[in-house]
Design a protein around this nucleic acid. Sequence first.
RNA 1: GGAGGGAUGGCAGAGUGGACUAUUGCGGCGGUCUUGAAAACCGUUGAGCACUGCAAGGUGCUCCCUGGGUUCGAAUCCCAGUCCCUCCGCCA
Length: 427
Amino acid sequence: MLDLRLIRENPHMVKSAMEKRGLGPDISKIDEIIEADSERRKVLVEVERLKQLRNETGDKIAELKKRKEDASGLIAEMRKISDRIKELDLKVRDIDETLRLLLLEVPNIPHESVPVGADERSNVEVRRWGEAPSFSFKPKPHWEIGEALGILDFKAGAKIASSRFTLLRGAGALLERALINFMLDLHTREHGYTEVFPPILANRDSFIGTGQLPKFEEDMYVCSDDLLLAPTAEVPVTNIHRDEILKESELPIKYTAYTPCFRREAGSYGRDVRGIIRQHQFNKVELVKFAHPDNSFDELESLTRDAEEILQKLGLHYRVVVLSTGDLGFSAAKTYDLEVWLPGAGEFKEISSCSCFTDFQARRANIRFRPEDGGKPRFVHTLNGSGLAIGRTFAAILENFQLDDMRVVIPPVLRPYMGGMTVIEKY
RNA sequence: GGAGGGAUGGCAGAGUGGACUAUUGCGGCGGUCUUGAAAACCGUUGAGCACUGCAAGGUGCUCCCUGGGUUCGAAUCCCAGUCCCUCCGCCA
């Protein structure tokens, strides 16, 4: 959520930010907001004046009653004032609700360092690590390898649930678990993150806090009791501190969490239909930071490097791209995607998305800190990134470390997590 | 699922219709004392919004779990809901 005062005082800047995102048609919302805001303040002035009168007259009535004098004239007068107050209060509430709904649909303002462009074709590569492995044979896609080894069972996943669900078996299930543990260990032991294991169902307030609601409900699995399955640990973990005032000295707060994630993938029919790249349920280790506004973009750099280190330790070739304004997520001010090389597909594929949300989520979720000098509470800046998506890492390992007989060499850093196994053999 | 208890400021915890401008304690901050610190003592310390002012500030309104209601007036009375705790039942 943007600061209403920013919109009021600098509407052109907000409109131009929306244009850069390719949201030209939604610009009229800004004018609606400005109009509702000025109407609200007009009514507010009147109702507050009446309330002052009510409070003062109330004291007079109490005084008269104490002296056992007649107050019926004042009481009759106040009855009318009171009705008028009720009327105006209702009006303010209506405007407030309209304003709130409008504000919740305005996206964050991109950081000045973000390249301007219509879509992902304007994303800019900022660095590249390692080299693509060379093969003496045609590398296969991960789903062929996984099925041949008996560690990926797409038929079973579809039978149990539906398409875009996969059963992992034997060394596959073990590899998944090894990746989770390896990533959590690195982030907690070497990068200073505190491990948490949150609820994976969360309420609507939490989803509004991080920006998935109200705009993107069709992407979510909504359960009975009005709880929703988290599409990313970002939702429950960021909301740990909803409605709290933190100490300045405890910033940045850094959490890492392993959770399953659930996405309906509405509107992605035909994309990544084969394999485990795009699933309704997948595992992810997430990194979340609550940072001081003064250095949040430095924290984005270090968070991104924390995620990159996983790929480096696994020996996977990747590149880092900064998303352009047209590809940037609704809540984000700046995002780096890590894209891993997939030899089977012959392309780079997103494996992590690291974002700084400035105070956009903090405003929605009301997460503040109290400055040490005793000033007013200020909103923190929130950040998060995948560190990493487990399923896509799994796929990258299969494709990058495959042998000509479809066996797969396990990266050395994972071997201790897999009972010393060095190669995945046919199950 | 059944029965009972509860929700008040960073925390603890009083307050049953007008004196609440929400008592008090702890914690925080500032000061006195001290070589320094602790203790003691003194002072100070919630959030949001609006109006006003060049500014420091000033004025007002709202907020005692949420939403309704009663009343001239509600932290306080009534109704509904949410969450937490205790006990019983069921259960991994």
